[in-house]
Nucleic acid binder design. Sequence first.
DNA 1: TTTTTTGTGATCGTTATTGACCATTTTTGA
DNA 2: TCAAAAATGGTCAATAACGATCACAAAAAA
Lengths: 259, 259
Amino acid sequence: MLTPERRKRILTYIEEHGAADVATLARLLGASESTVRRDLTALASQGQLHKFHGGAAPVEKAFSNREDSVSVKVTRCYEEKLRIARYAATLVNDDDFVFLDAGSTTFLMTRFLKGNGATFVTNGMPQAVALAEAGCHVMILGGDLKSSTEAVVGGVAAQHLQRYNFSKAFIGANGITNKEGFTTPETGEATVKAIAMERSFASFVLADHTKFGRIAAMRVAPLNAACVICDSCPEEIRRATVVKEVTEDGIHDHTESGA
Amino acid sequence: MLTPERRKRILTYIEEHGAADVATLARLLGASESTVRRDLTALASQGQLHKFHGGAAPVEKAFSNREDSVSVKVTRCYEEKLRIARYAATLVNDDDFVFLDAGSTTFLMTRFLKGNGATFVTNGMPQAVALAEAGCHVMILGGDLKSSTEAVVGGVAAQHLQRYNFSKAFIGANGITNKEGFTTPETGEATVKAIAMERSFASFVLADHTKFGRIAAMRVAPLNAACVICDSCPEEIRRATVVKEVTEDGIHDHTESGA
DNA sequence: TTTTTTGTGATCGTTATTGACCATTTTTGA
DNA sequence: TCAAAAATGGTCAATAACGATCACAAAAAA
């Protein structure tokens, strides 16, 4: 059997069955486990499937990727993120020059932003398209495109970003702790976030409650560098920076002094 | 059996069977494996099939479920544009640093480009996403996002573009005439196209036959600044620049001298 | 006619793919 | 927590396929 055909059959099989282990695939295809392993490695590197210890699965379902990677990610804490995004969008005024970070929560903001006088700079491809469709004045950051998150990162992006002075920046974060501050797993994304916050008069970090207490590899900024917009927040965070809690009842404001 | 007939039968066979190995084709055609290999190499270089170790398969089917969005399929001259795009994609080598213009024909090129060593810079948002999905190294041009065409334009884009030296540039054009050269209606897009062509070692303008004789507002470059890749081309254009006609039968090359 | 060009098939050194083997890592279950 | 079991990735030799080259024959040009 030819290599492309074999790989196609692997993709078809895991698509139909949801997943498959190496031994099953080897038997099914009449090939050795070594060959199947090599195929899985190759297909995984092309982003066509997700490989893990024991076998492989399609990328679409359990793990985010493919065409609407961001909108799939949005499903976790959807209600909370939507509340946060809706409130954050109200903070944008007509004369603002706004940086909008890539990520799921900031993407939800685009639903509530209309084409007024504000200008947006973003490193998220879905964000850029959505804002342009909404009639906003949008600029996309130039640089390397990271396919998994559809975000623009890298040195060129960082340099491009240095040109601007934002009035407001809306940033996503993967981890927030008192000691480590805002953290994110990707080095390239961390750099972009950090520069955007530095170059903005006011910065807002959007985070649902699952982000608190988690620590990712790269430090973006200390906790007091931004105002945190969240759905519910631990007491210790409130004491360290300005926090806005967006609950079902309304907005709860916490200044650095505590109340 | 004559060469064109043999090649046509190869294409027919892989179209019907999805794929074929060299030994099968050799037996089927009553030719040696050497001859079949030569045919496959020739057909692959014209983008008519996908050749791999062990055999060949149709181009479209070789890469899994990539389907064009409806808006792209609706475009005029779809078949011609597809032929042009398929051939243009074969011109990209592993070590190329390529500029890919925004537009429908250049977008179709992304169907035939896979993640090899080449690096792509593009000002088209759909192009960037498609290339990233295909595993290519992609950079998106920074600047203003024009919502109607999902293209990045403007001064920042132009400035960003100045940083690069491309080995090849693939450009779209709205009008091509002998006197006015390549033209396009939008000022911002014209600037980007012009700079990209200036900064590229070789430039290719992709155009279906409807573009000849039309004149748009902005002049991008004179006719001899690029090689024209088209489906069918007036005699007067052939005399003025290098033209590659991609017909159903194959590639027809025209040098500046006329034949 | 002779010469040149083109296409073909055979040969052969090189390269790519494959399956087995094994040390290492990861997972499982006591 | 630890040991047994399972899966993994790397190496290696064998095999299959590849492209380059050459000689030959047929067709085209001189």
